[in-house]
């Protein structure tokens, strides 16, 4: 009888176990994601459902406006602009992380939104986006301001035949001196 190498068996069993969990965590309907709860980090269990079942077909936009100390509101301006594509992005695209990061944070925020304003304002996604906006304002604005407000909107990107649509407007956020 052929002797089984215990290390090889352990490696094969571990691989088979991981494959098993991965296989049963890919249902097109995310309601069947029970096995994903074993991955507390949300990282080591692959999710192969890229751009499926429905891909995102809109761009997300983060805008903000400020309130001056004498009560004057600025116009809305884009806090972060999606990086325009260049040929070098084929091998080098550091800003993709920020573009994708905002997309992920907004997706998190929109998932909390139906649970009401209290949940929304307390969520890490809200605090992260709010801090992201605050940091941009502080970098770009050299005069003191009383506070700010941000807005999330979607657009159809290069297809300009559709009007951008507002997703969410934050409450006014006072800015400590």
């Amino acid at each position: 009888m052929k002797k089984v190498d215990p290390f090889a068996f352990a490696a094969a069993a571990a691989g088979a176990g991981m494959f098993f969990i991965t296989f049963f965590a890919q249902h097109p309907n995310r309601g069947f994601d029970r096995l994903r709860t074993v991955d507390k980090l949300g990282f080591w269990l692959p999710n192969w459902r890229f751009f499926a079942p429905e891909p995102a077909q809109n761009d997300l936009h983060l805008l903000h406006r400020t309130l001056s100390l004498d009560g004057e509101e600025s116009d809305w301006e884009e806090t972060h602009q999606t990086t325009r594509r260049r040929p070098t992005h084929f091998i080098w695209f550091p800003d993709r992380r920020t573009d994708k990061g905002l997309f992920d944070a907004v997706a998190d925020l929109m998932a909390v939104a139906p649970r009401g304003e209290d949940h929304l304002l307390a969520s890490p996604a809200y605090r992260t986006i709010s801090a992201f906006v605050r940091r941009r304002i502080r970098k770009a604005t050299h005069h003191p301001i009383a506070g700010y407000q941000f807005m999330l909107a979607t657009s159809t990107g290069y297809d300009e035949t559709n009007e951008p649509e507002e997703l969410l407007v934050s409450p006014y956020i006072p800015l400590e001196a």
Binding site: Q26, P28, N29, W48, R49, F50, F51, A52, P53, E54, P55, A56, Q57, N58, D59, L60, T82, R84, D99, K100, F103, T156, G157, Y158, D159
Partner: peptide, 28 residues
């Protein structure tokens, strides 16, 4: 998985997903 899961999306079945994704600044 990526292929079969897309089959469950109407925009992939009709082909609208291709111009739909390509019109975005993020991935298009």
């Amino acid at each position: 998985v990526s292929g079969w899961a897309k089959l469950f999306g109407a925009s992939w079945r009709t082909g609208k997903a291709v111009p739909g994704v390509m019109r975005t600044l993020s991935y298009g």
